[in-house]
């Protein structure tokens, strides 16, 4: 493209190339779909993985695309969970999908309100504020035990058949298909968002806020927007857990949950959307395996993984991921220049 004059369609295609579906992505989702039919006995844990993957995806939106470190993403997870629980126990909205959407919207509203608190200040202030918000919500859920069941958790969440057709069975088949479908739809939406002009401007803001504002971008506006969206995603994840587990508890707000989701995302890698899902998969399988060896103390190994990741260096982990991705890409049917 050196001497020949540039033409609009070619350049447009070049700009949009980032958004093109890669072969490995298609394989990924076909494999995910296949698990519905091929491993029915593992649907309970797969449901959890899908939900955690969605939760980690929400964190990726703010950490990977806006650079905000949050130690309180569980605030939104828990809020969404209780919203869905209360909608169900009080028979306000019994249609699961509608209830899910409402819980997500309510959580996004909470995200919008609290986003103004994380705009100012350093990483440390943001860590403290996000942590504080999660603690406050947990405390509130604990105090208003008449409404939330307090420390006993929210009991008696029953869930109507999906679209009035599919009953939630005790083996979790419906629950898994439902969770995976929600994850897929929200993933598509997130993929669209990050590849849009808005998404591009987010990457600009993350890369250099000073310059972003010098080309006319309202840095705070973008932060508020993505924080709100991410809160909504986390809320949907929490609501999904309530619906599929038919239970909501205070530990949904806990610091450990915020920390776990951060770990998942770090294992999988930030800033390419799949990191959270892959991280959730690895995390959950690791937890399952470690817990079967040392039931109570698996947290020790999680901690060890965290320390090891940092000491080894996330860059090196990134290189490893890059190498793996390249290998997968090499399996593509037709050749394509990266």
């Amino acid at each position: 493209m050196s001497a020949t004059p540039l033409n609009t369609p070619d350049v447009a295609r070049l700009v949009m190339s980032r958004a093109r579906w890669r072969f490995s992505e298609i394989v990924f989702w076909i494999a995910a779909l296949a698990t519905i039919f091929l491993v029915p006995s593992r649907h309970l844990i797969l449901t959890e993985i899908a939900i955690l993957g969605l939760f980690a995806l929400s964190l990726d939106l703010i950490l990977g695309y806006a650079g905000i470190i949050s130690l309180g993403q569980a605030a939104f997870f828990g809020f969404g969970a209780y919203c869905a629980g209360l909608l169900a126990t009080h028979q306000l909205v019994t249609e699961p999908v509608l209830a899910l959407a409402l819980a997500g919207a309510a959580t996004a509203a909470l995200g919008f309100v609290t986003s103004f608190l994380v705009l100012r200040g350093s990483d440390l202030t943001r860590i403290m504020v996000t942590l504080g918000i999660a603690l406050i919500l947990r405390e509130l859920a604990n105090r208003f035990d008449g409404l939330t069941g307090g420390a006993d958790g929210l009991q008696g969440v029953t869930i109507e058949p999906l679209f009035g057709l599919f009953r939630f069975d005790m083996f979790g088949h419906t629950a898994y298909a439902y969770s995976l479908a929600v994850l897929f739809v929200l993933f598509l939406l997130a993929r669209r968002i990050v590849n849009s002009p808005f998404g591009l401007s987010l990457r600009a803001v993350k890369g250099n806020p000073l310059r972003a504002s010098a080309v006319g971008i309202s840095v705070n506006g973008r932060m508020v927007a993505i924080y709100t969206i991410a809160a909504g995603y986390a809320g949907v994840a929490g609501a999904l857990l309530t619906q599929t587990a038919q239970f909501a508890s205070l530990d949904m707000f806990s610091f450990e949950r915020s920390a776990d989701v951060l770990l998942m995302l770090i294992i999988g890698g930030t800033g390419y959307l799949y990191g959270g899902i892959i991280g959730a998969l690895i995390f959950k399988l690791m937890q399952d395996w470690l817990a079967s060896m040392t039931p109570q103390y698996w947290q020790f190994w999680i901690g060890l993984v965290l320390v090891a990741i940092v000491i080894i260096g996330r860059e090196r982990l990134e290189q490893l991921r890059g190498a793996i991705r390249k290998r997968i890409l090499r399996l593509r049917p037709q050749k394509h220049a990266a």
């Binding site: 993984v305 965290l306 990741i309």
Partner: peptide, 9 residues
């Protein structure tokens, strides 16, 4: 991440 890891351990 590092210090949370230490806490968990």
């Amino acid at each position: 991440l590092f210090s949370i890891g230490l806490v968990f351990m």
